[in-house]
C-alpha cells in the first residue's frame, strides 16, 4: 500500500538548512493500524505530511498504491488527496462558518457531487458517528470530542484508502481520547489503513504497529506481538521521566 524508500526532507531556514528526514524506509500494508511516535522535532509530522501528499520530499521514492508520488502538479496532488486520503487534525480544522453537515460534505463538493446528495451522505456519516442531532450546529457550539468526530466523518466521506491523523487526541481528555481511538479502530476494522502521529504511549499502544522516529530516522518498529515489550519500554520511560 505504502512504500517509502530512503526519503529525505530538509527545510530552508534562511541561510541554514534543517535536515528533518534523513532516509526513511517504511512499508505499510493495506488495513494496517500504525502509529508514528517520537519526540518533538523528530520529523513525525513531516513524515505524515509527505504520506498525505501535503508536502514534497527531496530524495528517495514514495509509492502509494503502486503509484510513484513525485513532482505532481498541485491539481493532481489535490485530486489524489481527495480520492485516497482522509485527514484528521489535532485542532480539528473544521471551517468555522459551516455547520457540521456542511463541513462533512465539503470533500464531496470537490468531487463534484451535488449539494442535496452530498448533504444526505454527510448526514449518514454523522449518524454513524452518533452526531445526527448535531448536524445543523456550528463547530463552536460543539465539544472537542464532537468536533473531532465531525472531522473523522469528513475524513471518511470520500471513501479514502488511508486515514492520516495528526495527534487526533492531542486536544482531548483521556476518556474522549479513548472514544476517538475506538472510532479509529472501527474504521480500521472496516479495512481502511489508519496512520496516526502521537506522542502518547497509551494511544500508540492501541495500534498494531508503532514506528518510533529519532532525529529523522526510524529508531525502531514495534509490531503487534511485541507490544508487551513496548509497554515495558513505555514504563521505563515513565520512570526516567
Amino acid at each position: 500500500m505504502i512504500k517509502l524508500n530512503n526519503i529525505h526532507k530538509s527545510y530552508d531556514m534562511g541561510s541554514s538548512k534543517l535536515h528533518v528526514l534523513k532516509g526513511i524506509d517504511l512499508e505499510i500494508e493495506q488495513g494496517e493500524f500504525v502509529s508514528i511516535m517520537g519526540s518533538s522535532g523528530s520529523g513525525k509530522s513531516t513524515l505524515l505530511n509527505i504520506l498525505g501528499m501535503l508536502d514534497n520530499y527531496d530524495e528517495g521514492s514514495y509509492l502509494l498504491a503502486n503509484k510513484l508520488i513525485a513532482n505532481m502538479s498541485e491539481k493532481k496532488a489535490a485530486q489524489l488527496r481527495n480520492d485516497m486520503v482522509g485527514f484528521v487534525f489535532q485542532s480539528f480544522n473544521l471551517i468555522s462558518f459551516k455547520n457540521a453537515m456542511e463541513n462533512v460534505a465539503l470533500p464531496l463538493y470537490y468531487k463534484g457531487v451535488n449539494r442535496k446528495k452530498r448533504n444526505a451522505i454527510a448526514l449518514e456519516y454523522l449518524e454513524k458517528l452518533g452526531l445526527k442531532e448535531w448536524a445543523e450546529h456550528m463547530p463552536n457550539e460543539m465539544s472537542g470530542g464532537q468536533k473531532q468526530r465531525v472531522a473523522i466523518a469528513r475524513a471518511l466521506i470520500s471513501n479514502p484508502k488511508i486515514i492520516l491523523a495528526d495527534e487526533p487526541t492531542g486536544a482531548l481528555d483521556t476518556s474522549t481520547s479513548y472514544e476517538v481511538m475506538d472510532i479509529l479502530k472501527e474504521i480500521n476494522d472496516a479495512g481502511i489503513t489508519v496512520i496516526i502521529v502521537t506522542h502518547e504511549h497509551d494511544i500508540a499502544a492501541m495500534t498494531q504497529k508503532v514506528v518510533r522516529l529519532k532525529d529523522g530516522r526510524i529508531d525502531e518498529i514495534i509490531r503487534n506481538g511485541e507490544l508487551r515489550e513496548f509497554r515495558h519500554t513505555y514504563n521505563k520511560e515513565l520512570v526516567t521521566a
Binding site: E74, K75, A78, D83, N93, I95, L106, S158
Partner: peptide
C-alpha cells in the same frame, strides 16, 4: 488562510 489550507487538504485544487 486556514480555511484555504483545510480546503486544500481535503482535495481542493489551487485554481478552485
Amino acid at each position: 488562510t486556514k480555511e484555504i489550507g483545510i480546503r486544500k487538504a481535503i482535495g481542493a485544487s489551487p485554481a478552485s
